[in-house]
């Protein structure tokens, strides 16, 4: 996945929606910008597959040497897969946040939340303004 092809939440999660078996599945991660801002990551808490999320709901947290930051789901639906290796290999987030660093796959229950997402250019602009 290329960062240019993804969509982004204001809270720095990225989303890639694809169709699998006739259903919309969103892959969710966090952006390279967010990871750089967080600094050295030490801990990540992720949910179990099977849980249902609403767009904007907190699903986990990531802790750096500086602070703990909540992770918010950009979409609504059921978690079908979790990158369970990730918490033990947090360096993947630094090395490859858009492939190896994916966090969740969510089978979407609808389009809720999608209209709030930014495209790459708009997200870059937001980062430039805040950083």
């Amino acid at each position: 996945m290329k960062p240019e092809d993804l969509r982004y939440a204001e809270s720095h999660e990225w989303v890639h929606v694809s169709e699998q078996d006739g259903q919309q599945v969103a892959t969710v991660g966090i952006s390279a910008f967010a990871i750089e801002q967080l600094n050295d990551l030490v801990y990540m808490d992720l949910p179990e597959a099977g849980r249902t999320l609403k767009a904007g709901e907190e699903f986990g947290e990531v802790e750096s040497v500086k602070a703990v930051s909540p992770l918010y789901s950009p979409v609504s639906g059921e978690i079908v897969e979790v990158n369970s290796q990730l918490p033990d290999n947090l360096e993947w987030l630094n090395e490859d946040p858009y492939q190896k660093g994916w966090i969740l796959k969510v089978r979407m229950s609808g389009d809720e939340g999608l209209d709030q997402l930014l495209d790459h250019a708009a997200y870059q602009k937001q980062c430039a303004e805040s950083g």
């Binding site: 050295d40 990551l41 030490v42 801990y43 802790e63 040497v65 947090l90």
Partner: peptide, 8 residues
């Protein structure tokens, strides 16, 4: 001290 190693 290595903060990351100390935490992880």
């Amino acid at each position: 001290p290595n903060d990351v190693a100390a935490a992880r």
